[in-house]
């Protein structure tokens, strides 16, 4: 469904992505792991053009976009088929929870207002925020804000949802509620690409792990394989630091 091919991105002289390719099929839950600075967030942001890669290609079913020649219509088309969940939520401060969710529907997709409100209410219900739809973000906890931002993402019915460290800014006791929703979405068949440090999610929910380091994909595969029998040295080293009970021959 979604292919990202040979993405290169440099910030000034610093090459952050050195030719990365990823494939996402319908219903996949791809988790990208790696140390900080490996380029995982940059890769995610290149997919929906929040960052503009220097070279590469994005293929969405029959929509083929070359990064260099991408027009604003191409970018818009890609953005209408994806959704992004940010580390610090980025809910629109001047709009209520409900309005945050309807915004993309009404303004970008020209959905009529009453229909948009219905869709939004369903999405907010799904993330457990039905009782706060008229609250402004400043009146919501971090976990609640992130749940609304997930509702905002799924309401537009994207082909794939991109999660950029969705729980990293949350207090520990709030992480569970957000991960729970992500698990539920996965079980319903939503395609997701997730950058995270939450290993439990990676082990239990993902069906494909991508390990990145220093701008390249070092190893990828099914969680069972990557976590229990990592092939590369770097993978082993990373996992043994992150997973307390691991035991790899390094």
């Amino acid at each position: 469904m979604l292919e990202i091919n040979n993405i290169h991105k440099a910030f000034h002289k610093n090459e952050v992505l050195k030719g990365v390719s990823i494939k996402v099929n319908k219903g996949d839950v791809v988790v990208i792991l790696g140390p900080s600075g490996s380029g995982k967030t940059t890769l995610l942001r290149c997919i929906n053009f929040l960052e503009r890669a220097d070279r590469g290609e994005i293929i969405f079913d029959n929509l083929r976009v070359d990064i260099n020649t991408a027009s604003s219509q191409d970018i818009s088309r890609i953005r209408k088929r994806t959704a992004f969940v940010f580390q610090n939520y980025n809910l629109f401060n001047n709009k209520t929870a409900l309005e945050n969710v309807t915004e993309g529907l009404i303004v970008a997709r020209k959905v009529p207002k009453f229909e948009a409100i219905e869709i939004a209410k369903r999405a907010l219900n799904k993330v457990g925020m039905s009782d706060r739809i008229d609250y402004y973000p400043s009146k919501l906890s971090g976990g609640q804000q992130q749940r609304v931002s997930i509702a905002r993402a799924i309401a537009v019915n994207p082909d794939v949802v991109l999660f950029d460290e969705p729980t990293s800014a949350l207090d520990p006791e709030l992480i569970g509620e957000v991960l729970g929703i992500m698990k539920q979405l996965a079980s319903e068949g939503t395609a997701m690409v997730v950058v995270t440090h939450e290993m439990s999610f990676a082990q239990d929910v993902a069906n494909h792990i991508v390990f990145m380091d220093d701008g390249v994909i070092v190893e990828e595969g099914h969680p069972k394989d990557v976590f229990s029998k990592p092939r590369e040295e770097r993978t082993k080293r990373f996992l043994s630091r992150i997973l307390p009970y691991s035991d790899y021959d390094i």
Binding site: R79, F84, F86, N90, F92, G104, A108, S149, V156
Partner: peptide, 17 residues
């Protein structure tokens, strides 16, 4: 916060919107 603008773009709003 520029994140507000990024979120707007990511749900499909045009830069103008």
């Amino acid at each position: 916060d520029k994140g507000q603008q990024e979120a707007a773009l990511s749900i499909g709003l045009s830069p103008y919107q």
